[in-house]
Protein backbone atom coordinates (compact mmCIF):
# COMPACT_ATOMS: atom_id res chain seq x y z
CA UNK A 1 0.00 0.00 0.00
CA UNK A 2 2.87 2.37 0.82
CA UNK A 3 4.39 1.64 -2.58
CA UNK A 4 1.11 2.73 -4.18
CA UNK A 5 1.35 6.05 -2.37
CA UNK A 6 5.05 6.74 -2.54
CA UNK A 7 5.73 5.28 -6.00
CA UNK A 8 8.71 6.29 -8.10
CA UNK A 9 6.76 8.99 -9.97
CA UNK A 10 5.51 10.60 -6.75
CA UNK A 11 8.94 10.45 -5.15
CA UNK A 12 10.56 11.91 -8.26
CA UNK A 13 8.13 14.82 -8.55
CA UNK A 14 7.94 15.15 -4.78
CA UNK A 15 11.69 15.54 -4.37
CA UNK A 16 12.49 17.22 -7.68
CA UNK A 17 9.40 19.23 -8.56
CA UNK A 18 9.02 20.61 -12.07
CA UNK A 19 7.92 24.19 -12.71
CA UNK A 20 8.95 25.31 -9.23
CA UNK A 21 9.76 28.92 -10.00
CA UNK A 22 8.15 32.33 -9.71
CA UNK A 23 6.62 33.73 -12.89
CA UNK A 24 7.08 37.51 -13.22
CA UNK A 25 4.81 37.72 -16.29
CA UNK A 26 1.98 35.59 -14.89
CA UNK A 27 -1.50 36.80 -15.84
CA UNK A 28 -3.02 35.37 -12.69
CA UNK A 29 -1.83 33.88 -9.43
CA UNK A 30 -3.21 32.75 -6.09
CA UNK A 31 -1.94 31.56 -2.70
CA UNK A 32 -2.82 28.26 -1.04
CA UNK A 33 -2.16 27.29 2.56
CA UNK A 34 -3.05 24.39 4.80
CA UNK A 35 -2.65 25.76 8.27
CA UNK A 36 -2.35 22.59 10.32
CA UNK A 37 0.33 20.88 8.23
CA UNK A 38 1.99 23.97 6.81
CA UNK A 39 1.74 23.06 3.10
CA UNK A 40 1.83 26.39 1.29
CA UNK A 41 2.26 27.67 -2.23
CA UNK A 42 1.74 30.48 -4.66
CA UNK A 43 0.47 29.26 -8.00
CA UNK A 44 1.22 31.21 -11.19
CA UNK A 45 -0.59 30.91 -14.51
CA UNK A 46 -0.02 32.66 -17.81
CA UNK A 47 -3.31 32.58 -19.69
CA UNK A 48 -3.53 33.96 -23.23
CA UNK A 49 -6.71 33.68 -25.32
CA UNK A 50 -8.05 31.27 -22.72
CA UNK A 51 -5.09 28.94 -23.18
CA UNK A 52 -2.78 28.24 -20.23
CA UNK A 53 0.59 28.99 -21.80
CA UNK A 54 2.60 28.44 -18.64
CA UNK A 55 2.06 27.20 -15.09
CA UNK A 56 4.42 27.26 -12.12
CA UNK A 57 4.48 27.39 -8.35
CA UNK A 58 6.66 28.22 -5.40
CA UNK A 59 6.07 26.69 -2.02
CA UNK A 60 6.95 24.04 0.51
CA UNK A 61 5.17 20.98 1.80
CA UNK A 62 5.02 17.23 1.96
CA UNK A 63 5.84 14.90 -0.93
CA UNK A 64 2.22 14.32 -1.86
CA UNK A 65 1.53 18.04 -2.06
CA UNK A 66 4.74 18.78 -3.95
CA UNK A 67 4.31 15.92 -6.42
CA UNK A 68 0.74 17.00 -7.09
CA UNK A 69 1.73 20.63 -7.71
CA UNK A 70 4.53 19.49 -10.00
CA UNK A 71 2.41 17.06 -12.01
CA UNK A 72 -0.47 19.53 -12.18
CA UNK A 73 1.60 22.39 -13.55
CA UNK A 74 3.05 20.02 -16.16
CA UNK A 75 -0.40 18.89 -17.18
CA UNK A 76 -2.05 22.31 -17.38
CA UNK A 77 0.23 23.75 -20.03
CA UNK A 78 -1.56 24.11 -23.37
CA UNK A 79 -5.00 23.41 -21.89
CA UNK A 80 -7.95 25.79 -22.05
CA UNK A 81 -9.21 27.05 -18.71
CA UNK A 82 -12.34 24.90 -19.09
CA UNK A 83 -10.18 21.85 -19.77
CA UNK A 84 -8.08 22.63 -16.70
CA UNK A 85 -11.15 22.69 -14.49
CA UNK A 86 -12.45 19.49 -16.06
CA UNK A 87 -9.14 17.75 -15.36
CA UNK A 88 -9.41 18.86 -11.72
CA UNK A 89 -12.90 17.36 -11.55
CA UNK A 90 -11.78 13.98 -12.81
CA UNK A 91 -8.57 14.09 -10.75
CA UNK A 92 -10.62 14.74 -7.63
CA UNK A 93 -12.75 11.72 -8.50
CA UNK A 94 -9.62 9.66 -8.96
CA UNK A 95 -8.60 10.47 -5.38
CA UNK A 96 -11.94 10.13 -3.68
CA UNK A 97 -13.84 7.33 -5.43
CA UNK A 98 -13.29 3.91 -6.93
CA UNK A 99 -13.22 5.05 -10.56
CA UNK A 100 -10.79 2.96 -12.55
CA UNK A 101 -7.47 4.64 -13.23
CA UNK A 102 -7.95 5.30 -16.93
CA UNK A 103 -5.24 6.07 -19.44
CA UNK A 104 -6.48 9.64 -19.77
CA UNK A 105 -5.00 10.41 -16.37
CA UNK A 106 -1.50 9.90 -17.69
CA UNK A 107 1.13 10.74 -15.11
CA UNK A 108 -1.53 12.02 -12.73
CA UNK A 109 -2.49 8.37 -12.20
CA UNK A 110 0.63 8.13 -10.04
CA UNK A 111 -1.32 9.97 -7.35
CA UNK A 112 -4.15 7.41 -7.45
CA UNK A 113 -2.70 5.65 -4.39
CA UNK A 114 -3.86 8.60 -2.29
CA UNK A 115 -7.40 7.18 -2.36
CA UNK A 116 -6.33 4.57 0.19
CA UNK A 117 -5.12 7.35 2.51
CA UNK A 118 -8.13 9.65 2.93
CA UNK A 119 -6.34 11.97 5.37
CA UNK A 120 -3.86 12.81 2.64
CA UNK A 121 -6.40 13.88 -0.01
CA UNK A 122 -6.05 17.43 1.29
CA UNK A 123 -2.34 17.35 0.48
CA UNK A 124 -2.95 16.14 -3.06
CA UNK A 125 -5.65 18.69 -3.87
CA UNK A 126 -4.28 21.92 -2.39
CA UNK A 127 -2.49 23.02 -5.57
CA UNK A 128 -5.61 22.27 -7.61
CA UNK A 129 -7.92 24.33 -5.44
CA UNK A 130 -5.37 27.11 -5.63
CA UNK A 131 -5.40 26.82 -9.42
CA UNK A 132 -9.18 27.17 -9.40
CA UNK A 133 -8.88 30.32 -7.28
CA UNK A 134 -6.22 31.74 -9.60
CA UNK A 135 -8.51 31.26 -12.60
CA UNK A 136 -11.49 32.74 -10.77
CA UNK A 137 -9.42 35.61 -9.40
CA UNK A 138 -10.49 37.69 -6.46
CA UNK A 139 -10.70 34.96 -3.78
CA UNK A 140 -10.34 36.82 -0.49
CA UNK A 141 -8.60 34.02 1.41
CA UNK A 142 -5.81 31.62 0.42
CA UNK A 143 -7.13 28.30 -0.85
CA UNK A 144 -7.27 25.62 1.82
CA UNK A 145 -8.30 21.97 1.77
CA UNK A 146 -8.50 21.48 5.54
Amino acid sequence: MLDDLYNEMVKDHGSHPRNKRPMPDATCQAPGFNRTCGDSLVLYLKVENDIIKDASFVGEGCQIFTASASLMTDRLKGKTTAEALAIFESFHELLTSDVPVAAEFGKLAALGGVRKFPVRVKCATLAWHTMKNALAEGAAEPASTE
Binding site: L2, Y6, T36, G38, G61, C62, I64, R120
Partner: peptide
Protein backbone atom coordinates in the same frame (compact mmCIF):
# COMPACT_ATOMS: atom_id res chain seq x y z
CA UNK B 1 16.29 16.76 6.41
CA UNK B 2 14.42 16.50 3.12
CA UNK B 3 11.41 14.71 4.58
CA UNK B 4 8.09 16.22 5.56
CA UNK B 5 6.52 15.21 8.90
CA UNK B 6 3.23 14.23 7.24
CA UNK B 7 4.98 11.78 4.96
CA UNK B 8 6.90 10.39 7.93
CA UNK B 9 3.67 10.07 9.93
CA UNK B 10 1.90 8.19 7.13
CA UNK B 11 4.75 5.73 6.63
CA UNK B 12 5.19 5.10 10.37
CA UNK B 13 1.44 4.50 10.68
CA UNK B 14 1.71 1.74 8.09
CA UNK B 15 4.22 0.11 10.46
CA UNK B 16 1.75 0.37 13.34
CA UNK B 17 3.59 3.30 14.93
CA UNK B 18 1.34 6.16 16.06
CA UNK B 19 3.08 9.54 16.24
CA UNK B 20 1.74 13.06 15.82
CA UNK B 21 2.78 15.41 13.06
CA UNK B 22 2.08 19.09 12.70
CA UNK B 23 2.52 22.22 14.78
Amino acid sequence: EGLHPHDIGTVLDQMGIAVRTGH
